[in-house]
Structure formats: structure tokens, C-alpha cells
């Protein structure tokens, strides 16, 4: 749970982001603080580095464009994570339409491409992990990656995905079981 100091600090930071006189400097700080976390969140959805770079830039551009209207009803980081998630899913939707394939087929294609991706350093087991993830429903995959690889707390994931903590736990454990089964049997 965030303490009051953190909440006040975020409110103060939001004021800096919304004031035209301080916006640019505050935005640079925001990018510096969140670029890595958002990069990994996006990368695990779109898989390819160059695509991730595009989506990450679009995410920050959108944050920049909309920060003036952000009312602070949710936390800044969960708002940015939601934008990053939406941008990533929209990107995949467009890609899927361009290639004329369904969502599952697209996931399988993306995993195939990882084999020749210079920025994928995984071996056989990691490739198999991605094959397992490709079979999961999108929300289970999101929850799994956010919990297992980004070590996010359920409360924080809940704020981003708008799903109850109980449902997230169920989703996560379903995902783990399916991935384990895939890795041991296929």
C-alpha cells in the first residue's frame, strides 16, 4: 500500500507535468523513470524489439498529449500501464488484420520469428515458454507476465487491468498450470 508521502509526491509531480512551464522537464523525468518498466511490459506482449520501440514511443507520445487532461482518478503509473497495454493490443490487432490472420495464428508467427531475432537470447526452453504463452487467452498471458516476470503486486495488476485480485490470482494459477503442462508434455 502506498503511503501518504508517495501520494502527495505523485500529486506534486502531476502538477509539474501539467504546468506548461515545468512540463518538459517533468516529462523527461517521467520517461526516465518508466521507460524500462513499460518497455518490458510491451515487449512481452508484442515480442519484437522494433515493434516494442514503436509502441513504447507511441505510449509516451500519448501520455504527453493527454497528461493535461489526466484527472488523477487513478495512479499515474497504472494509467500509463493501461495506455501501454492498449497500445500494444491495438498494435497486434492491426498487425493481425494486415497479415489476414487470426489472433492465435499471429501469436504463433511472432514466436516463430523469435528464432531468428537477434534480440532474443533464449534457448529451447525459453522458446517453448513463448509457444506455451501463445496458446493462453490474452488476459491470462498479461497477468502471468506481469506477476511472474515483472514481479508486480496483485493490487497493482488489478489497478491496471481493472480485474479483482481474486480473479487475477485464479487467472495466474491457471496460466502457470497450463504453461507447466505444456513445458513438460509437448
Amino acid at each position: 500500500m502506498e503511503n501518504d508521502t508517495t501520494l502527495v509526491a505523485e500529486e506534486d509531480f502531476l502538477v509539474l507535468l501539467q504546468d506548461p512551464a515545468t512540463r518538459d522537464k517533468a516529462f523527461e523525468e517521467l520517461v526516465s523513470n518508466y521507460q524500462e518498466r513499460l518497455y518490458w511490459h510491451i515487449r512481452r506482449i508484442v515480442l519484437d524489439h522494433d515493434d516494442t520501440d514503436d509502441v513504447l514511443q507511441n505510449t509516451f507520445i500519448k501520455v504527453f498529449r493527454n497528461i493535461g487532461g489526466f484527472k488523477g482518478d487513478s495512479k499515474l503509473y497504472s494509467w500509463m500501464y493501461r495506455i501501454a497495454t492498449n497500445e500494444s493490443l491495438s498494435f497486434l490487432k492491426q498487425k493481425s488484420r494486415k497479415l489476414g490472420v487470426g489472433s492465435l495464428e499471429l501469436q504463433e508467427k511472432l514466436v516463430e520469428q523469435l528464432e531468428s531475432d537477434v534480440y532474443f537470447e533464449g534457448d529451447e526452453i525459453q522458446l517453448k515458454l513463448q509457444q506455451a504463452l501463445a496458446q493462453l487467452p490474452e488476459k491470462q498471458k498479461l497477468v502471468f507476465n506481469m506477476k511472474y516476470y515483472q514481479n508486480m503486486k496483485y493490487d497493482d495488476i488489478s489497478a491496471v487491468l481493472g480485474t479483482s485480485v481474486g480473479a487475477l490470482k485464479t487467472s495466474y494459477h491457471h496460466a502457470v498450470k497450463k504453461i507447466e503442462a505444456f513445458l513438460t508434455t509437448e
Binding site: H49, I61, I125, V176, L183, T184
Partner: peptide, 24 residues
């Protein structure tokens, strides 16, 4: 999990995060 690898194998180009802010 004891079966699921802790590292998922993704990498980034060297210096990517250092230059991302300027690039953006």
C-alpha cells in the same frame, strides 16, 4: 515455478535505454 524459466530470454540493443529519452 520450478519448471518455468526465471529469465524469458529477451534482450535489448546495447545502450537502448540510455538513448531512448533523447530519441523520444
Amino acid at each position: 515455478s520450478s519448471i518455468i524459466p526465471e529469465d524469458d530470454g529477451f534482450g535489448v540493443p546495447e545502450g537502448y535505454f540510455e538513448s531512448f529519452g533523447d530519441h523520444l
